[in-house]
Every structure is written in C-alpha cells, then in structure tokens.
Design a protein around this nucleic acid. Structure first.
Lengths: 218, 218
DNA sequence: GCTTCCCATTTTGGATACAATATACAATCA
DNA sequence: TGATTGTATATTGTATCCAAAATGGGAAGC
C-alpha cells in the first residue's frame, strides 16, 4: 500500500464540522454569551439543511456551551461567577491527580512538545494564540496519563471556561504568570517529581480561579 | 387562578421521552451491551418518525451509553475492566469532596430521606429496586452540596457503570455490605462529621471497585 | 470448493415539507 | 388610554421522502 490511507468512516459528518466551527467561535469569544443561534441561519451559512445543524446544537448543549429551550431556540450559554468557580474547583480536583499519574509515563517527545508550547507561548505575536497554546500545553502533558474518561470530562470543563481564561491571559500579568507556572510544571515533570507537578498544577488552577474572581465583571 | 396549572412547556419532547426510556433500559440491564439499536424499530415502537429517535440516540451517545458508527448504526456500549476502573477512580476523586461540602448543608429532611432509602434498601422485596435506591441514596446526600456541575458529571459516570453495580448488588454479600456502609455514611452526616463521611464514601467506592474487579467476567 | 465480484436489500444521513408553538403587533372594547 | 384578545410571522419539532453507504447472498471464474 503506497498511498497514505486513513479511515474514511472517521471523516467528519456535516454535524461534526458545524459543531467544531461553533464551538471554536464560542470558546474564542467570537460568539458572545446570550447570542441567539437560529437553526435556519446556521443551515444557510453552512449550506446544509437544519437536520445536521440540530445535531450540532444538541452536542453543543451537552457540552454546556449553549442552552436551548423547546420551541424557543438556543443561545450561547452564560457563566455566573459561581458556576465558573465550581468549574475551577472541578479542575482543581481532577488535574493534579491526572498529571500525577501522567508523569511516570511522559516520553521525551511529550516533554519536548510541552516545552515547545511554553516557548511559543513566551514569544507568541498574536494574543489569540495564547489560549490555544495554553490548552495544548495542558492536554499534551495530561495525555500521558491514559485516563481517557478524565480527559474527556476535563476537556468539556475547559471548553466551558475557555473564553474567560483567554480574557484573563490578556490581563497585565496574566500571561507572564501562566508562562512562569507552566515552566515550573514542565520542570517538575522532567525530573519525575509527580507530586510536585500535581501540587504546582493545583496552585496554577487555584491561582487562575482567584484572578478570575478578582477581575469578574458582568 | 382556580385551576391547578403547571408549566406545559416543561413537557418533554418525543426525543426526551425516548432518551429516558432507552437510558432506563440500558442502566437496568434490560438492554445488554452490544445490543443493536435500529432507528426504524425504535420509531415503530414509540409510534414516531425516525427524527426524534435519532436525537435520542445522539444524546445517548454523548452520555456514553451507546456507541454509533456512521452508516452502521448504534449498539449499547460495552465497558472494559479498564474503563470501569477509571470511572470508579473518577467517582472516588469527586464524591468524597462533594459529600464533604454537602454535610454542613444537609437539612433534617435530606437526612430523613437518606435514612428512608437505607431502610427501603434493607427490606426491599425486589432486587431490581436495589439499584434505584442505591442511586437515590447517594444523589439525595450529594444534592445538598449545591455543586451542580459536579453532580451532573457524577450522574453521567454513574449511568455508565450502573448495570455493573446492579449486578454486583446481586452478589452474595454485595447488598449487605452496601447497606452497612450506607448506614455508616448517613450516621457520619447526621453528626456533622464531614471528613469522616468523605472518607467513608471514598472507601465505599473503592470497595465496590475492588469487588467489581474480582468478579469481572466478560 | 474457494474466491471474487456484482447486485439487491437494509439501514443510516440528509433534504424538503408540514405541524406545533412562541413572539410581536394590530384590533377591539372598557 | 389601557388592557385584552385576535392574528400574522418567525422559529422550532416532526413526518415523509430521497441519497449514500454498508451488509449479505448469489453468480461467475479459477
């Protein structure tokens, strides 16, 4: 077999593509909270019928990114300070354990990739990349844990607060501190100090939560 | 207003009703793992078109209760020992913290309801009720935590392993031990010992996990 | 007999059409 | 004028129909 083959059945369905596009728009903040999402409009924009659009919207609702009411349509979900706080607490519970279990299985490639994220993070030109790199840094390290279920839950939790994290990175010292803490975490991982990495991760999250609470405005 | 009114808009849609029915059938074990779910059959059974059925199936897939492949249909999801173990670990991480935070807010009514679950659990005639009562016992206590997001995640995790928990309760000493541990947990809650309740909950879960591993067969 | 290919059937994905419900505005009456 | 009711429009929920893909079985070839 000479050609680069891949499983065609894994090719995204229309619904998946729409889901990804809207999800991206929400977590980057392009779609503000409360923004209504009309099936017909979206269908026209993607040149499909409303059926796959409805599938995408349903998936988005399951992820907590939108809220929809029967016969009334869907809007981009908002987030109260209380809800945001709870999601940070959720992360603070899971992520330390995940990284603790991941450290012993981190390959040099993984550590290198994490370091690359840090570097790119440090001298990224576009602030919009910060959010992506931050996300990639964490998921790269966590992947080694092999805890697929935990990671799935974490990803959804991250999606939920992503727009707020991006806003926070734009604060005066938000990005610097995140970068500093990332470097400490990856150092702990490199030296195999699982518990230290877990503790740093926990503080990284709680620090972000505290910063978010302080600058909350809605 | 003289007539007994209620919010009609809260009436479930066809898709929701179908989702609930199939979910129930899966977590009680009526639908065994690997069982195929054909849209046409389900639609006929509920006397609706395939559209709401498809929505229900999508929701079930997002809950992890079924797995579906493009153009190939859906089957009831199976669970490997590794996946089951991870879900127990997930619960063991969340539930102790949830109950710890719930204890200070437990009203007498909540404690009474939990006690009622224990009593009913103790002398239930139908083993099929055990699973329901077990579920209700935990959710009752946890509800006081106010951690809506955590509870939502936990509910999905519980759904995933529910059929296996029910099977385990049927084991010789499964139900007795569960009942004993439930009583200890509710006692700790009554006396306001949050940390003790958390620890008992953790051991309750890890014990169940260990029992499941021992009797695993597939 | 075994394999391979082709085609018919089954089943799912998606488009179009229609029904049910919400929302906004006009019309009516006190 | 103000409230209330009828009506039109917009939007979502569902049914029906068609297209695309998978599955299974039989015929042709070795």
């Amino acid at each position: 077999m000479k050609i680069q083959a891949y499983d065609i059945s894994k090719t995204a369905s229309a619904a998946t593509l729409i889901f990804d596009a809207i999800r991206q728009a929400i977590i980057t903040g392009d779609l503000a909270q409360g923004e209504p999402l009309r099936q017909e409009d979206i269908a026209r924009a993607f040149n499909v019928s409303r059926i796959p659009v409805r599938e995408a919207l349903q998936k988005l609702e399951q992820h907590g990114l939108i809220v929809s009411q029967r016969y009334k349509g869907a809007v981009v979900a908002g987030l109260s300070l209380e809800e945001a706080t709870e999601i940070f607490e959720f992360r603070a519970l899971l992520e330390p354990e995940v990284i603790r279990r991941a450290v012993p299985h981190m390959s040099p490639q993984v550590l290198q990739e994490a370091a690359r994220c840090c570097a790119a993070f440090g001298n990224a030109e576009d602030p919009m990349q910060w959010g992506d790199l931050n996300r990639r840094f964490h998921t790269t390290l966590y992947a080694a844990s092999g805890l697929a279920y935990h990671l799935e839950m974490l990803n959804k939790a991250m999606d939920r607060i992503d727009p707020y994290l991006r806003a926070q990175l734009l604060l005066s010292d938000g990005m610097q501190r995140a970068n500093r803490e990332h470097l400490m975490i990856v150092d702990a991982c490199k030296s195999g100090q699982a518990d230290k990495a877990a503790d740093l991760t926990r503080q990284h999250i709680l620090g972000a939560q505290e910063s978010l609470s302080r600058h909350w405005q809605k």
